[in-house]
């Protein structure tokens, strides 16, 4: 019987089908509604400009959410990496040094989060919110109140192009970076002992502690790792726009949280995972890009994103609730 077969379908799988189906429908719709959607140029633009940065930040968020926490300061990590990178370049330092220093700045933010959460036992929400506020002040103070730093002079172009516009065997460098990050986080989260322990901490910290897992130490690694990924995004971001715009990283925060949690809907137990997050990022990016191509103005795009994400969630959670 049809209804029986329907009922027998695992609700987790059903909810996965719903999200993937919604994604496919959206792609199909935009492909029909906007002829330019499926062109190589647009897909390239979609991937390099919309997906890569958000995906790298969202991977960091995935790690954190898998451990049962949240990181509101991802934007600060992105910004600090971007700021240090651009400032050092402007001061005439060598590009590799600037990149390393930028990543170092992000690691510093992550370490601060880790210390607050594991040493001072502040809840992740408040700890990272505090760091977000502090990060904003630091940026204002370093830039005279939030003045962007543009590096448009020709001498900087090679550095930026090497990072953001080069390609290897026809694959753009940012995409290669994304694939590497994806592979790394996938392996760490889903294949290693560390990843398993993080999932246990996320499921029940007490059980993890009673199983001999060094909970604070592993959590610290999670927050530092997330900040490192954000640092990578920061370097990519400033190389793409050839500038540092204070507090621009915050734009990723809510999208990254959204993408990660949308991603959890494809898991039977609603656990965050790399593939799910990637799907979440793709969904958000396609909707944004598609609505733009269909000709909605920027304002309506935001409404559209909200409504579409809401609908996907409604279907996914609604199906889950049938039990």
């Amino acid at each position: 019987m049809a209804t029986n077969a329907f009922r027998r379908l695992d609700t987790g799988r059903l909810s996965t089908l719903a999200v993937v189906g919604a994604f496919a429908l959206l792609v199909a719709f935009f492909a029909l509604a906007a002829p330019s959607f499926l062109t190589a140029g647009n897909l390239y633009n979609l991937l390099v400009n919309n997906v890569v940065l958000l995906a790298v930040v969202a991977l960091g968020m995935t790690l954190v959410i898998a451990s049962g926490g949240i990181d509101l300061s991802v934007g600060v990590s992105v910004d600090m990496a971007s700021m240090v990178f651009i400032m050092l370049l402007a001061a005439g330092y060598a590009a590799p040094l600037a990149v390393l220093a930028g990543l170092g700045a992000a690691l510093l933010v992550g370490s601060l989060n880790a210390a607050l959460i594991t040493r001072l036992r502040i809840s992740p929400f408040l700890a990272t919110l505090g760091v977000l506020f502090i990060g904003q002040s630091v940026q204002r103070l370093s830039t005279g109140g939030g003045q962007p730093i543009y590096l448009v002079r020709a001498e900087f172009a090679p550095t930026f192009d090497a990072i953001a516009r080069s390609s290897l065997l026809g694959v753009p460098t940012p995409v290669i970076v994304l694939v590497l990050c994806l592979a790394a986080v996938y392996l760490v989260l889903h294949r290693t002992v560390f990843g398993r322990q993080v999932a246990a901490i996320g499921a029940k910290p007490g059980v993890a502690w009673y199983s001999g897992i060094r909970v604070p130490f592993q959590l610290a690694k999670v927050y530092v790792g997330a900040a490192f990924l954000c640092g990578i995004a920061g370097i990519l971001l400033s190389s793409t726009v050839k500038s540092y715009v204070p507090m621009s990283g915050n734009a990723f925060l809510l999208d990254a949280i959204g993408a990660t949690f949308i991603g959890t809907t494809i898991s039977r137990e609603r656990r965050p995972g790399v593939l799910g997050t990637l799907l979440g990022v793709a969904l958000l990016a396609v909707v944004k890009n598609g609505l733009l191509l269909v000709g909605w103005n920027f304002y309506w795009q935001q409404v559209g994103i909200g409504v579409l994400v809401f609908l996907v969630l409604a279907v996914s959670f609604g199906l889950h609730r049938r039990d």
């Binding site: 002992v193 322990q197 999932a199």
Partner: peptide, 26 residues
Amino acid sequence: HGVAIGLSVRENASLASLARYSRNGF
């Protein structure tokens, strides 16, 4: 403290002994 009910039997049963079933951290 004993079992994480949101994890599977496998994940719970191997939680304290993962090192035995792993190679280079995997």
